[in-house]
């Protein structure tokens, strides 16, 4: 278990997340792509903390913040999905193509 190996795994997770976020039509699946990218970020943050920071606690703080970002993204994302669905009965991205007035 080296830093390089961990970062490559994190890069793979990030790549998969990018693919998902770009390719999925459904809002909720799109959010799963974003979460997957944050998953890679979290792994990279913990990896850097464990291997290059001599255990400085700020590295763990960064990981905690990544988790907070995930929670915020999910909550606001779902609220927006609900709002859009109420307004337009749309649950796919193409459904709000006319949002630009």
């Amino acid at each position: 278990m080296t830093l390089t190996a961990i970062l490559i795994v994190a890069a793979a997770l990030f790549g998969i997340g990018l693919f998902g976020a770009l390719s999925q039509k459904s809002f909720v699946m799109l959010m799963m792509g974003l979460e997957m990218m944050l998953n890679g970020t979290l792994l990279a943050a913990v990896g850097f903390w464990a291997f290059t920071l001599e255990g400085a606690p700020k590295g763990q703080l960064l990981a905690v913040l990544v988790m907070a970002v995930m929670a915020v993204e999910l909550a606001i994302g779902f609220a927006l999905v609900v709002a859009v669905y109420r307004k337009r009965q749309a649950d796919v991205i193409e459904g709000i193509g006319t949002m630009k007035q």
Binding site: L7, I8, A10, A11, A12, F14, G15, I16, L18, F19, G20, L22, S23
Partner: peptide
């Protein structure tokens, strides 16, 4: 396009 972007992301970061 998405597959390309995903692979590019992975390869670039790696």
């Amino acid at each position: 396009f998405s597959i390309g972007a995903g692979i590019m992301g992975f390869v670039g970061l790696t």
